[in-house]
Design a protein around this nucleic acid. Sequence first.
DNA 1: GTAGGGTTAG
Length: 650
Amino acid sequence: MTPTLPLPPNREAHLISLIQSTQSLHHLKQIHGLVLRLHLFFSGSPIATQLISSSSRLRSIPFALSLFRLFPSPSPFLFDAIIRALSDHSLFDSSLSHFALMFNSSLRPGRLAFPFALKSAAFTSRTALAFSLHAAAAKVALDLDFFVRTSLVDMYVKLDLVVCAIKVFDETPEWHRAGNVLLWNVVINGLCRSGDVERARELFDVMPERSVASWNSLVQGLLKRGDLDAAVELFEGMPERNVVSWTTMVAGLSRNGDNQRAVWMFDRMLEGGVRANEFTVASALSACSRMGALESGVRVHEYALGNGFRADGAVGTALVDMYSKCGKIERASEVFDQMEQRDVLTWTTIIMGWAIHGHWRRALQCFEDMRCACVKPDDGVFLAVLMACTHSGKVEKGVELFDSMRFDYKIEPTMKHYTCMVDLFGRAGRLEEALEFMKAMPVEPDFVLWGALFSACRAHKNVKMAELAAENFLRLKPSHSGGYVFLSNMYSSAKRWDEAEKVRTTMKDQSVEKSPGWSYIEVRGQTHRFLAGDQSHPRSNEIHNRLEELVLRAKEQGYEPDIDCVLHDIEEEDKEDSLECHSEKLALAFALISTVDREEIRIVKNLRVCVDCHSLMKVASSIYGREIILRDNKRFHHFKTGVCSCGDYW
DNA sequence: GTAGGGTTAG
């Protein structure tokens, strides 16, 4: 059937505006049919060009390509359109080969083809090609073009050749760059990316006019190097902020550990009437995930649901991660199941989720499912399955997966994989194998890896190997307090007091600061943080009373304080009651006085939970009939009716 | 043609 389309006398112009405004590929194909019948579909026709551009806009590269291929000798406009379409859809290789086709024909690429070819070269990291393209553009004086010049600078920035970017910028005549804010922005962004915020600031101060993007780049530069206060100050002073500015803050604060402020920024943005996009939502969810703040996370989720965000891509993955890291692995799994698109990152996230919750079977099942879904495993997903084995003591399975990664998938292990393996052997008490594994590694172990071995030695009370591990740990990372604390604890529990004392003195001499243990709990939208021995909470008295009561009742049930753990916290060791001061116990006591019966209790702790707290939590879960979900810095512990989901393996 | 995002060992 011929579609009935109204055709006024100026039919070509009308067709073009019809093509540009259509929102469906089906409709576009109908128009194409009509154009064919009207004999308006030929190489030099602007209608043909518009059809290709619109296919790209409607995300159908196959149709765009099939149109392009109908022309034995395409016009320069058609080449421009297809090169741009391919580059816009990240099909950089294809974009470049079409550029080459154009270049080698009698046609010369013009001011529209070059920018997209430059972008493609940048994204495929082809430095040599980048230089040739630059030279080719210069040869025909196109490098002086507004578009081309900006693209050149941006290309060098993307290729991490900031020096080249600045050179192009500096060689741009004054009159040329005066009215090109974009050119300035691109350079400023390049400088910020390479860490040279000072120089970026100098350019920022003298540029003829600024846009929001200029500010955003600078703020991002400061956040990237951890200068949070400076970033916030600049941000607050911005004459205008857009969704990118806010997202930059949310993501940057979160990456630097200030998740509370990140979520606050998100809320402020919404209060100010700025609509979030998927980048913002994903960043906000990530902040909630890092904090373990379920209530905030649910709020962001509700916002996403109410504003038509699809739980796919980054938002979906961030949701899965948020629920998983907030203790709701079943909920994470539901979200995961409902997703339509899952990439390797999504799978990694859910596998890691099952891993940290101690469900190695579910983790491995997901890994199988992922392979069945033809998603190619990468090093990250292997790390996640190895973690699953580590947290559940599945040593043989872990070794098998590690070998499979290397030999079946030809993926070279990274230091993270090696550490995971040492942890796998170490936690299982197979210390000799762990050490052997380290010796067989093709690379020199780093301090993290020695740290993993050390933890294993401590858990399995092998002082001799612990000394070796600590020695290397401190050799590679003398400023790290953990090494000293560990070693001192080791000697203490082996009753080698003199040596323990010596380590502590060394530590004090080098003025190494110990990172304090804290626990965090969210009660009805309010967050409460406790430090070890904390008495600053307004309800501190009640908390300590409830804790005493808990310990008494627990003792009736056979709980015995584990004295070894007192030594865990060396600064507290002289206090008799220091065991009762661990921050997770305070958080638990607070939860008991501030939540209702049977309500589940979720605690987040920044260090690994000690044996004593772990056993008290178990007893508490049965005494009060509560489910206690504790996230420590490694994994989750679900305490219920006197047992822990980790099976006391952690 | 510019700015922002989801996973990752101890």
